[in-house]
Design a protein around this nucleic acid. Structure first.
Length: 263
DNA sequence: ATGGTGGCTTTGCCA
């Protein structure tokens, strides 16, 4: 079973690139963030034609929005509002074999990394706190769970192009990294990508649109993650960040992140 | 220190 997570930055604008992802990687399940479309206008039929008839979608106008697209049967199971806001940042499904899959789009947090002056940063921290509580309530060491998404935090020094230059930049500040670590601990999550790629290797999943030449500058950050419960670690076979995706025509600023399992 | 680009739209707001 192959699972991809990708912040597509408008699903309607990038159906061609979704087809490119399918050609390149042929995932069984694709988790999207920033679909930016209400459910009634979601391109269900086009995506079914691409081979993904099972779709769990949760979208709104213009902003945010998540979707789980699957070749395999699944049932919606989870997906809720967070921080009292109906802003479509989470959907969850149950897959065959009792596997739970959750897809998150964590708030980006604005520019100023100070919750007392920046409401967006305060929202980001509250969102992580609520996720942490949610994980604590659902402790079950034997559960088979996968959590993916754009978590908008690059935790390790090697998850950013320059730890020194980004330590005060939202996505790589100490307070965010601590909260993310707390969340990871509360859910006993294993970072699948870092489980297979050594921590001294720099890897990114996002490159800003604002660079003249994103590939040459290579000022990336690893904001997109695949986490798994201990029970699934023996089944984990490979991980990949599809950097090519950042170079497709009219690209998203994120590249797909992919994990394969022997399931 | 600043501004750079992109998507959707509320030609400003969000990333």
């Amino acid at each position: 079973m192959k699972i991809a997570t990708w912040n597509i930055n408008s699903v309607r604008l990038r159906l061609d690139n979704l087809a490119r992802l399918i050609d390149a990687a042929n995932p069984d399940i694709i988790c999207l963030q920033e679909t930016k479309v209400v459910d009634e206008l979601f391109p269900r039929a086009d995506i079914e034609a691409l081979g993904y008839p099972h779709q769990a979608i949760r979208g709104m106008k213009s902003y945010n929005g998540v979707a789980i697209l699957s070749r395999l049967p699944m049932t919606e199971n989870g997906g809720r509002d967070w921080c009292g806001k109906p802003d479509c940042r989470h959907t969850g499904v149950a897959l065959a074999g009792g596997i739970e899959l959750h897809n998150f789009y964590v708030p980006a947090g604005g520019d100023e990394p100070d919750p007392t002056v920046n409401d967006k940063f305060a929202h980001k921290l509250s969102f992580l706190d609520e996720m942490t509580e949610w994980c604590q309530e659902r402790r079950d060491p034997s559960a088979k769970r996968i959590l993916v998404g754009d978590l908008n935090i690059a935790p390790l020094e090697t998850d950013v192009w320059s730890h020194k230059q980004l330590r005060k930049v939202v996505s790589h500040t100490e307070i965010e990294i601590e909260r993310l670590a707390g969340l990871q601990q509360a859910g006993r999550w294993i970072d699948a990508v870092r489980h297979l790629i050594p921590t001294d290797e720099k890897i990114y999943s996002w490159w800003s649109y604002r660079a003249k030449d994103w590939r040459a500058a290579d000022r990336g950050r690893r904001l997109d993650h695949i986490w798994i419960s201990e029970e699934l670690v023996p089944a984990l076979r490979s991980v990949e960040i599809l950097k090519d995706g950042r170079g497709w025509p009219q690209p998203s600023d994120h590249a797909p992140v992919i994990a394969s399992f022997d399931i």
